[in-house]
Nucleic acid binder design. Structure first.
Lengths: 353, 353
DNA sequence: CCAAGCTGATTAATCGTTTAATCAAACATA
DNA sequence: TATGTTTGATTAAACGATTAATCAGCTTGG
């Protein structure tokens, strides 16, 4: 019955109290000069009448929509749900709505999607760039979530330090010969993580990096990584640069009869949904996306505010904060190297030592 | 330089051509009566001046924002990226923007999120309901993506038929004793899939359903499913009701030294990212989310259109189309039962036969 | 030749909010 | 008392598009 009721407007409140609509506006926004009593009366009337401000009218008048765009150039990224959730949360509590734009990875579609956002009048946008891609300067405030080594108004996890943490964890378990598994050399994030891992493992460790993307050029997508051979070769740990690769490594090892973690440890990054439910659950690093989202929204809000304070055009301030720390989540996929274990499934002990 | 330029308005176009703004509006929308020549001239001027309609002004005048809300009560759902992508695509080509709303699974948050969407004046919303939850009737058009057995303005895959397809596939490989793995009895989708599986396997098959949620109540979250014992018991196939469960099954079996698919087959639903990269890749059913999204947006558009045609309040028409077919993706995690295989890793052959 | 009808355009109101400009009254200062 | 200043409110003009109502010309029909 009462569902379809048109919400009250400021004019109606004004009429009901016999004041002008400007006074109502001032009272509700706390901006002009309104006596305390009248202000209270107006607020109460607004409540009683079920006043809901018209975003459209406000947007028309002020030129600000209180909506930000979320641009996900690579939406198939399984981290997306978490990012979207965190951003939506942070944006909502900052009074912003979130309009999504996707581009199926294609640059043309991305441009089109961004264009639609701009036409819709978003106040700014948060971009999670496709690896290595640079965002063209549109006339709209932008905040970027990527690696700290990306220039611009960027927020991100401290991927390098994450790598260091994982490296130390593996080193402390006694791993000396570690295979790093990454996908693309183009990715700032992946490079940071690889660098951190090497640093964390220390200079004593012998480690090599397997770039899956390059391997797949010759062997075809979804090819086996040949990890069993690596185990035979003396590798005792496989540190992937994100959980999907870790999962790929884990299942390949298990399929080939290698016990994880007894014969080989496996680790990942990002703590995606499956990492905790597979057997064994995967040791990984969790990003604090709530904090990242909060900072990104905050940074964006700042730029927006300062832009319409000064009508000048310094649209994207270069403020680049410290990376947000990642937290190590230790599960059962990593453990001591086999020779430091008392007993174990010995049927595949073929390492050199 | 030219980035921050304020886009031209209708009034400016009108001034430039010496006509009235109403004529410009009519020409661009094709609604009023404007001569062909003038119309062409206006359109050209609009192009040259870089006219961009003001969504805010239009929304204020017409009461329609050309934005729909996407409500994901359970955003951690790994299917979300695909859904969001498909919806965004379909919405964009229907001229809608997509505002996201998430609720971290909590009902209070969901209500709040929906409220924010309504206040923002979305023209309608697409809801992917939390299992079993019913959507309260807000005064806004709604389309639902769930199981066909959900009442209301619903679009969905034909989960039952998907189950049938998978059941037949497994039966054709010779599996007679199959364990179905599901999570919650509350979920319409899961129930449909289970029912379909049973039907597809045929009445000769012996199958039981493992409800993981119930198991975890007593054994704790992330507990082992005890599948190795099932294999010993004669089960040759494990049909999970979604890929995350399939992955859990696969890794548990592999960890316990059981070869997939030689000793046991594993299958899932939804074709999530990891399904194709694990070893062995998982046989699964893919939803045609593009079609689903298209239909949902279409249905929503219809309701929106008919609502502001008739000012009456029949907000949610009960139109419930046929389910969208799912397609079977056969990979290496399913295969013939072992005793019909010539050779195999025999070290774990403990089944009864 | 006049009423009626059609065409192609204009006028002006409207959506709901914000905000600069104005104003009346009260109050303080000289 | 005349002059400023502060306070608390009002007026009215935007913002940019849509649209009902109106109007000036022209064409037609009887």
């Amino acid at each position: 019955m009462s569902v379809g009721r048109t919400p009250a407007t400021m004019t109606e409140i004004a009429a009901a109290l016999g004041v002008s609509s400007a006074t109502v506006s001032n009272a509700l926004s706390g901006k002009g000069r309104v006596s305390a009593e009248l202000s209270a009366k107006i607020r109460q009337a607004a409540d009683e009448l079920g006043y809901v401000p018209s975003h459209a009218a406000r947007a028309l008048r002020t030129g600000r929509t209180a909506v930000i765009g979320l641009v996900l150039p690579d939406i198939s990224n399984p981290l997306f749900p978490q990012i979207a959730q965190a951003i939506e949360q942070a944006a909502a509590s900052a009074g912003f709505g979130v309009l999504i734009a996707d581009s199926r990875g294609e640059i043309a579609q991305q441009t089109a999607a961004i264009g639609r956002l701009v036409e819709r009048g978003v106040d700014g946008m948060i971009v999670v760039p496709r690896r290595g891609s640079r965002i063209a300067d549109i006339g709209t405030p932008v905040a970027i979530i990527d690696s700290p080594s990306t220039p611009g108004n960027t927020v991100s996890s401290d991927h390098w330090d994450g790598g260091v943490q994982m490296g130390r964890h593996l080193a402390s378990l006694g791993h000396q010969k570690v295979l790093l598994i990454a996908n693309s050399r183009q990715s700032n994030v992946q490079n940071d993580r690889v660098g951190g891992l090497e640093a964390g493992l220390g200079s004593d460790a012998c480690c090599e990096t397997l770039w899956v993307e390059e391997m797949e050029v010759s062997q075809g997508a979804g090819c086996a990584l040949g990890l069993a051979a690596r185990v035979a070769d003396g590798y005792t740990a496989f540190a992937a640069v994100y959980d999907l690769l870790a999962l790929r490594a884990l299942t390949e090892l298990q399929r080939d009869g290698i016990d994880v973690p007894l014969q080989a440890s496996v680790s990942g990054f990002d703590d995606l949904v499956w990492s905790s439910v597979v057997m064994p659950p995967i040791t990984t690093l969790r990003q604090d996306l709530a904090v990242i989202a909060e900072r990104a929204v905050q940074a964006l809000g700042d730029v927006i505010a300062e832009r319409d304070a000064a009508t000048g055009e310094p649209v994207s301030a270069e403020r680049n904060g410290a990376g947000v720390p990642m937290t190590l989540v230790i599960r059962q996929s990593t453990g001591p190297t086999m020779h430091s274990v008392v007993a174990g499934a010995a049927h595949a002990r073929r390492d050199g030592r």
